[in-house]
Design a protein around this nucleic acid. Structure first.
Ligand code: SF4
Ligand code: SF4
Lengths: 158, 158
DNA sequence: TTGACTCGGACAACATATGTCCGAGTAAGG
DNA sequence: CCTTACTCGGACATATGTTGTCCGAGTCAA
């Protein structure tokens, strides 16, 4: 899986604690990753209408919806693409015993099995929202991590 | 996902219909794929002890267990590797607000969520065995596909 | 009006997956 | 028993996707 998904999720959780727009460069230095590369993932989120970009001097990214309405699956599909992890090559239509194309209208048993597993994976991701993640990471530590992040965002050097 | 998984699954199903050892080259020309590349996947299956290789003049590959005892998950993990699709980079330990390492003993909420989804995916694949796949593909068509494959395997040109 | 700061997509470097090759070993057959 | 042809096994190039980078178009604040 593309490793950029992790960064995108972290950014969404951080944006929960933000009050105004947050530039991509700020998020990058907060996470200690390449700023230009993280911009790419944020652009993907923007194309999926999960975040909105405001340009100009004090611009940045803002969530378009309340975090309760953004699921982890939304973020994953925005970055990773919406197609299934298993792609069918239709090899049953090749070779000496190839099935005729008119018999291959429906996906075969193997593809069906993989599709079922893929749906289960996506269903599990759909159950968790970004707001849930914020609560969970808050519970992981004694200190209020999200509050500290919010403070740092407003007091950081430009 | 690695596309070789599909070929490996097809090979396992075909081996169900075989009586003796089947060489990799035979399976390759049956599926119309590169023989040398398919050999790589079969070697992975061999390392995972799903198939056994018999060498010599009329050698090939044979299933080590009855097909009821081989799950689709076994094949996928043999080819694709056993690690989760989501790998944690521990970026919470980087940047100006890095968490101290002693607070990062357990995986964080994001990693836990991904792990849950991954387990659901694997559980779905574990429910289906190779024998089930054979029955399902048999029911997909009116003609007895596995029987035809078995006949072709013994009558094919060397 | 200025100006500096933001995003956006186009451009290389690297890693993994794909595809290929030839040598070691073995069982069949004469 | 020896030959011989056939098998697997791991080491070697190529292609595709991911990671990382760059500079220009556009925009809001001052
Ligand atoms: S539908 Fe089935 S036979 Fe066709 S390519 Fe997919 S897995 Fe293979
Ligand atoms: S454990 Fe959580 S914070 Fe650490 S790298 Fe994984 S997703 Fe990020």
């Amino acid at each position: 899986m593309s490793g950029g998904v992790e960064a995108a999720l972290h950014c969404c959780v951080v944006l929960t604690a933000a009050t105004g727009p947050v530039p991509a460069a700020r998020l990058a230095q907060l996470h200690g990753v390449s700023a230009t590369y993280l911009a790419k993932q944020l652009q993907a989120l923007s194309r999926a209408d999960l975040v909105q970009s405001v340009q100009g001097k004090s611009g940045g990214y803002v969530l378009t919806r309340p975090p309760e309405d953004i699921t982890v699956l939304d973020v994953v599909e925005a970055v990773e693409g919406t197609q299934s992890t298993f792609v069918c090559t239709e090899i049953r239509q090749r070779g000496p015993l190839a099935s005729p194309p008119e018999a291959c209208t429906a996906p075969c048993a193997i593809a069906r099995t993989m599709a079922v597993a893929d749906r289960a994976w996506r269903a599990a991701l759909r159950e968790v929202s970004i707001a849930d993640l914020g609560r969970l990471v808050g519970g992981d530590y004694d200190t209020d991590v999200l509050g500290k992040v919010g403070d740092w965002l407003v007091s950081a050097e430009p």
